[in-house]
Amino acid sequence: MFNIASILVLVLLAVTFIQSGYEKVMYWSDNVTWLKEHFSKTRLKNHVPLALFHLLVLELISGILCVVGCIQLLVNNGRTFGLYGGIFSCITLIMMLFGQRLAKDYDGARTIIIYFIPAVMVVYWLS
């Protein structure tokens, strides 16, 4: 269990992104409606469904890579999938951060940083 910290962070990221992806799929129209209002004064206002779809894809890729990374660490101490999961998680979070800053939702942006710190830590540990 040498990589227990990496495994715990990968589980955190997997739960975060898979849960978020699930909610986007199950409540798509509610999300689109809310986000259209959220981004109504930005240049994303006419591209919300496409942006949300891109975010959904990245979240699912991130979550799946984190799950596979946990399994790989447990089975053969491999780090490849966990590293990619951390990298994709960072990219996904940066996309979210950009959107929140664009919408001038600074509290939302601050919340994303809380997830970004462990994501960067896992990239550092597994690289």
Rank of each mutant, 00 (worst) to 15 (best):
M1C: 06
F2C: 06
I4A: 11
I4S: 12
I4W: 15
A5S: 11
A5K: 13
I7R: 05
L8D: 07
V9N: 01
V9G: 02
L10P: 01
V11T: 06
V11R: 03
L12Y: 04
T16C: 08
F17P: 01
F17V: 01
I18L: 10
Q19F: 15
Q19R: 14
Q19P: 08
Y22W: 15
E23L: 14
K24A: 00
M26V: 09
M26P: 01
M26N: 09
W28L: 02
N31D: 07
V32Q: 03
W34G: 10
W34H: 14
L35K: 01
L35D: 04
K36M: 10
E37W: 11
H38M: 06
F39K: 03
F39N: 06
S40W: 01
K41T: 13
R43L: 12
K45T: 04
K45G: 05
K45Q: 08
N46G: 10
N46A: 12
V48C: 07
V48I: 13
V48Y: 14
P49V: 12
L50Q: 14
A51D: 11
L52R: 05
H54P: 07
L56P: 04
L58H: 13
E59V: 01
L60R: 04
L60N: 05
I61W: 02
I61T: 05
I61L: 05
L65Q: 01
L65T: 01
C66D: 03
V68Y: 11
G69E: 00
C70P: 04
C70T: 12
C70M: 09
I71W: 13
Q72C: 09
L73M: 00
L73P: 00
N76I: 08
N77P: 04
N77Q: 15
T80A: 09
T80V: 11
G82W: 06
G82S: 05
L83H: 13
L83I: 08
Y84M: 08
G85C: 02
G85V: 01
G86W: 07
I87K: 00
S89R: 04
S89Y: 03
S89P: 02
C90Q: 08
C90H: 09
C90E: 07
T92S: 03
I94D: 01
M95W: 15
M95P: 07
F98N: 12
Q100T: 13
L102C: 12
L102R: 13
K104S: 13
Y106C: 10
D107F: 15
G108Q: 10
A109F: 12
R110D: 13
R110V: 08
R110N: 14
T111C: 07
T111A: 14
I112M: 11
I113R: 03
I113F: 05
I113L: 09
I113T: 02
F116C: 01
F116W: 07
F116P: 02
I117M: 03
P118M: 00
V120N: 08
V122M: 05
V122D: 01
V122G: 02
Y124Q: 07
Y124S: 10
Y124N: 12
W125I: 07
L126Y: 02
L126E: 02
S127E: 07
